[in-house]
Design a binder for these strands. Structure first.
Lengths: 206, 206
DNA sequence: AATAATAGCGGACAATTGTCCGTTTGTCAA
DNA sequence: TTGACAAACGGACAATTGTCCGCTATTATT
């Protein structure tokens, strides 16, 4: 039988991504519309929507490179700190995540919008929570928390649950509010979060 | 001079709210459009948008009664537990908030959408964080946390900051994901959150 | 090369959100 | 009462999001 695949499909995907990246950096993620991206890239609406059903999906794709870098950083740090106490490793990971959230705030907020609204809430899939970035962060935090608890250094809790809560606490709009309204710097926020979410779990804190 | 106020303005406001409430309960918050509400109520688009710029604002108004009840419950509990340890009072407040979030999930999610997206992010106002409900919850948590810390029962932290983080951790979509994906009941979630966010702050935990 | 078949492109179209402006309507002064 | 004034109503209009379907272009087959 015939199963033809267009050879130019991949090129269009890259054209769309590149156009979106350019427009986002020039005008800001919020103000650029899907229609505008398609128009500028010179492709039909459907051509884009078939790839990215919402702006959030597009952003998730765009952030993928940056996220790969974050992942490499975290993995590197963990390897380098392999012999360090779990607490230290947890703090290192946390710091990286917060820096990343701060740097990629605009894309992350757009992704969050898609998560919160839309029929995602009805889908079984739950795009965001099943995305590779989320799963990686959750998995990494969970295993560190589990190691800390299993080695008896902390109080008792459910590592997977706690990891979800910690990630929720790092929602971009909350961090932005803390920095806009209260003037906290990124370092302030990191320190405060460690004092509030991580250290208290450890017996050795006092 | 003349400063006339239409006497029917208030009636229209109530008509809009009532219509919205009816449509929401009948069809669900997500599927009902602003246009549909205006059409059903028999008022112009602008008449509604002049009062509620987004669906989230409307939901914030609709939830106000329920929130008044929550507030009364919390205030009542705190009065009743006036002599109880701070830890116990914190847990009681937390429990109420989570139950409320669970019961009013659909309205709260709609409110969150408006918060996360939209030009709210550019506004100085930041509607949501300045809303009476948020300020009340944040204030109540902050004062309890401050009391706990000042009385030397807990580790050291910034009460106001921590209160923000705690509320962020209770985001409706996160709680929904925990219950949908992992099957946690409301009581499970309450217990876990207490073990993760509250008890560890206290010296006396162990 | 010519042909058949289909993956998938593109623009028109529908639905929703948000804005603007001509007109109505209630209030106050005479 | 009547007239003037402005608060505020309502629907038309613009912008954005999301869908549908006719048509093109690509590839396997002969």
């Amino acid at each position: 039988m015939v199963t033809p695949k267009r050879k130019d499909a991949q090129q269009l995907t890259e054209l769309i991504l590149e156009t979106a990246r350019d427009l986002f950096t020039q005008y800001g993620v919020d103000t650029v519309s899907m229609h505008q991206i398609a128009k500028t890239a010179g492709v039909g609406q459907a051509t884009m929507y078939r790839r990215y059903a919402q702006k959030g999906d597009l952003c998730l794709e765009l952030i993928d490179d940056q996220f790969g870098r974050l992942r490499a950083e975290i993995d590197g740090q963990l390897e380098q700190l392999a012999d360090a106490p779990v607490l230290e490793r947890l703090i290192a990971v946390f710091r990286r995540i917060i820096m990343f959230t701060h740097n990629e705030a605009s894309l992350l907020k757009a992704i969050h919008v898609s998560l919160v609204q839309s029929r995602c809430l009805n889908d079984d899939a739950q795009q965001f929570f099943c995305s590779q970035p989320y799963l990686y962060l959750h998995g990494t935090l969970t295993s560190l928390l589990k190691e800390a608890m299993d080695s008896g250094q902390t109080v008792s809790f459910d590592p997977a649950f706690t990891a979800h809560i910690m990630i929720a606490a790092l929602a971009p709009h909350t961090l932005q509010h803390l920095s806009d309204r209260y003037g906290y710097t990124t370092d302030d926020i990191i320190d405060q979060l460690i004092c509030t979410l991580i250290r208290p779990l450890f017996h050795s804190f006092e």
